[in-house]
């Protein structure tokens, strides 16, 4: 017993600065409201098209609908039964509903396109303003250079492949290495902040008939208003996918330490091999 070295105090690093923590939690709330109110808006016309126009008589590439006693999701010619979840489901009072997304997934829970739009269009401001400020801080406040900048060696395919393998085997960095973002983290954070979130905002703006008149180039960029609506929908699910992986990684890497660091900023470094007593 006495031969063992004294337990090393856990090394704590200040990992997340205040702007990152503030934006993270504000964004979590904003995106949740935008997703749920967006699903309500989708319920008003649960069909997606490519091109400038698209309505009931036109061919939809994606559709959520119902037959007499089943709900379905159709993508192209692929169709899957979704009874109970999409297209045909039972509400809290036991009544059959035929809206695309169920009440537990929408804001508000009962069908109201008007209220869904109120929430969506208001929280879109929060998303856009907070993202703009955070992008500026990221670019000029050192976050990009210090934390997100992908170093030369990290671009090597071998390095990226090794990081993918480490993630797949749930082998997480420890010690000094855990203080920095790994390459997959960097790429996904950069992708969300600089690609997917701006894409959400611009495809959203491209659906505004008022803004279309002033900036027709934006709608041309996406190939038409209905294409913009489709891309908006796809990008929203890309964010949901990011969220699921993000949560899985937090849970696997140590949820208490990870969540605490996003609240207080301080992250406890997992001990490197050999440090464990």
């Amino acid at each position: 017993m006495t031969d063992l070295p004294p337990a090393m105090p856990p090394v704590r690093v200040y990992r997340h600065r205040l702007p990152t923590r503030l934006w993270h939690w504000l964004n979590a709330l904003t995106l949740l409201v935008l997703l749920m109110s967006g699903l309500m808006i989708f319920n008003a016309h649960p069909r997606l098209y490519w091109g400038q126009y698209g309505a009931n008589h036109d061919r939809a590439w994606l559709e959520i609908g119902s037959t007499r006693d089943a709900g379905y999701l159709r993508v192209g010619s692929w169709k899957v039964d979704t009874t109970g979840v999409l297209g045909r489901w039972t509400d809290g009072e036991g009544a059959t509903q035929r809206w695309a997304f169920p009440s537990w997934a929408t804001i508000p829970t009962r069908y109201s396109l008007a209220d869904g739009r109120r929430w969506h269009l208001s929280f879109a401001w929060l998303l856009a303003i907070a993202l703009t400020l955070y992008m500026l801080w990221t670019a000029f406040g050192g976050h990009l250079a210090k934390d997100l900048h992908v170093r030369r060696g990290e671009w090597a395919p071998r390095h990226i492949w090794r990081d993918i393998k480490d993630h797949a085997r749930l082998r997480f960095p420890a010690g000094e290495a855990a203080a920095r973002y790994n390459i997959l983290q960097k790429l996904s954070y950069i992708g969300v902040i600089f690609v997917v979130l701006p894409l959400m905002i611009f495809t959203g703006l491209a659906m505004s008939p008022g803004f279309n008149a002033t900036a027709p180039w934006l709608i041309d960029l996406f190939g038409g208003r209905q294409s913009a609506r489709s891309i908006h929908f796809i990008a929203a699910w890309a964010l949901v996918a990011f969220f699921l992986v993000h949560i899985a990684m937090v849970l696997l890497a140590g949820p208490v330490n990870e969540v605490r660091s996003m609240i207080t900023g301080w992250f406890r470094l997992p001990p490197a091999k050999g440090e464990r007593a």
Binding site: I41, F42, A44, H45, R47, Y49, Q52, Y53, G54, A55, N56, L113, R117, M207, P209, R225, Q226, R229
Partner: peptide, 12 residues
Amino acid sequence: TRHDCVEGWSAI
């Protein structure tokens, strides 16, 4: 012109 319904569909 393109007619945009609040529901999300468009027709020209």
